[in-house]
């Protein structure tokens, strides 16, 4: 099968890859680039575990073809920390014990970053609705919401 040549910026680095027509962006990230931080929980856009940012927009990478990445700027969980320095959301998730098994965590973190990029001062309700596309079966969301609100406050300098 003929493969498509794609050039995209992934986690700040210009990257080239070949993919076939049916490969999702999630497949490309996981199978071609070894970026396995994005998880497949459903493959149908219902769980959010594969969340990435495409040109700053929150996307389920299982619902995007690899070929659609051409010319885009993509951030995955692997690109969220600044080298050794965790993003405030990552730090707050650890401090608040906002993960148990940790499988949904990459997607929840990416989605939370998208929220705070757009709305640095969300209400609890706004955070809950924004994260409604990210399923977590372990935590009951309580500590996730606490961590997001706390990270937002810290990022606002409060």
């Amino acid at each position: 099968m003929a493969k498509t040549h794609v050039t995209a910026t992934i986690n700040g680095e210009e990257t080239e890859f070949l993919c076939d027509g049916q490969q999702t962006m999630l497949d490309v990230l996981r199978d071609e680039m070894g970026l396995t931080g994005s998880k497949e929980g459903c493959g149908s856009g219902d769980c959010g575990a594969c969340s990435i940012l495409v040109d700053g927009r929150l996307v389920c990478s299982c619902l995007m073809f690899g070929a659609e990445a051409e010319g885009t700027d993509i951030m995955t969980i692997e690109g969220m920390a600044d080298g050794d320095k965790l993003h405030p959301l990552q730090q707050k998730f650890l401090e608040h014990a906002a993960l148990q098994c940790g499988f949904c965590t990459p997607g929840v973190l990416v989605a939370s970053k998208a929220l705070l990029d757009k709305n640095p001062n969300p209400t609890e309700e706004e955070a809950r609705y924004w994260l409604a596309g990210n399923l977590c079966r372990c935590t009951g969301y309580d500590k996730i919401i606490e961590a997001v609100m706390d990270a937002a406050a810290e990022m606002r300098g409060e």
Partner: peptide, 21 residues
Amino acid sequence: TRPIRPDGVEKVIGRAAFGAD
């Protein structure tokens, strides 16, 4: 007390290896 879990960082940076990884 409430220390940070020893496997925490790996999990928030997407490096922890789960079954399919």
